Simulated scan of single mutants.
Amino acid sequence: MARIDLKRALAEHQRALASVTQSSQKIENLIARIIQAFEAGGKVLWMGNGGSAADAQHMAAEMMVRYVKDRRPLPAIALNTDTSILTAHSNDYDFETVFSRQIEGLAQREDVVMALSTSGHSANVVRGMEAAMKKGCYCVVLTGQAESPLSRMAHCVFQVDSHETARIQEAHTFISHLICEGLDTHFA
């Protein structure tokens, strides 16, 4: 029977979350920026691949439905959830441009675009952020410790102190939940 090293996994998890704690002012500033976007009629557009796509979908749902407190729906879309768009675009064009195409069609200047990528190298997410920057959106990246194209191209970057995908994703969820708590406090 295989055994996992729980002590090592917990230590890596704690190190990743400690890097989130060190970003508390950045999280507060981002919450304020998202509130500003909503009050200006904007929305939050989320994107990611694989586990990060699931996290993007999760967070868009937390905003649209509710996190903990009852409040009005906050406009949020996970760009990776429409299978018809994903498959049609990937078939007719290219998977690398699947998010940039949606940003071109949906994003407005007052929007916040949230990119989740543990590696920071996902070509479709990079292209999506490039399109969001061109549109004048406020761009946010959640990624891992390594320098990457995404870590160098946004207004706000959260680089989790880890190289392990699972630990990075756990920290991304923590950051996103903290954002939702801040939005609940403001809008509930």
Results as ranks from 00 to 15, higher is better:
R3H: 04
V141Y: 03
R72A: 13
M63P: 02
G136K: 06
Q14R: 14
I179R: 02
S162A: 13
S19D: 06
A132I: 10
A32R: 12
A16P: 09
A107N: 05
A146T: 07
I175D: 09
S176P: 00
T165N: 08
M47F: 15
V160W: 05
G144N: 03
M47R: 04
L150M: 12
D82A: 04
T118H: 10
A188Y: 03
H13Y: 01
Q108V: 10
R109V: 08
Q169C: 05
N29C: 04
Q102K: 11
H13V: 07
A154D: 04
R72H: 02
H177M: 06
V68L: 09
R152P: 03
E181C: 07
E104S: 08
E110M: 09
F95R: 02
V157T: 14
L79C: 06
V44I: 11
F187A: 11
S148V: 09
R3P: 00
N49E: 08
R127H: 15
M129F: 12
M1D: 04
P75W: 09
V125Y: 10
A61C: 14
L79I: 04
A88Y: 12
L183C: 09
T87L: 10
A115L: 03
H155N: 15
A132H: 09
T21C: 11
Y67A: 11
Q108T: 13
N124V: 06
T97E: 12
N91P: 10
G42P: 07
F95S: 06
A188L: 00
S52Q: 08
L17I: 15
Q108Y: 03
H177K: 08
D111E: 03
R72Y: 00
V157A: 01
R109N: 07
T173L: 15
H163M: 05
R66K: 15
D161Q: 13
T118C: 13
E130C: 05
E28M: 10
I4K: 13
I179Q: 02
I77R: 04
E28T: 14
G128D: 08
E110G: 00
S119V: 11
V113A: 07
Q145I: 01
H58F: 11
A146W: 02
A9P: 00
M59T: 02
L45D: 01
T97W: 14
V125W: 10
L116C: 08
R71N: 04
V141T: 11
V126T: 10
P73T: 09
A32V: 01
K134M: 05
K7H: 02
M153V: 02
F95G: 00
V98E: 04
T81H: 05
F158E: 08
M114A: 06
I179W: 00
N29E: 14
M1R: 13
L86H: 12
E12S: 13
S19Y: 12
I27Y: 07
E39I: 12
V113M: 06
E130R: 14
R71K: 05
K7S: 15
V125H: 03
V160H: 02
A18W: 12
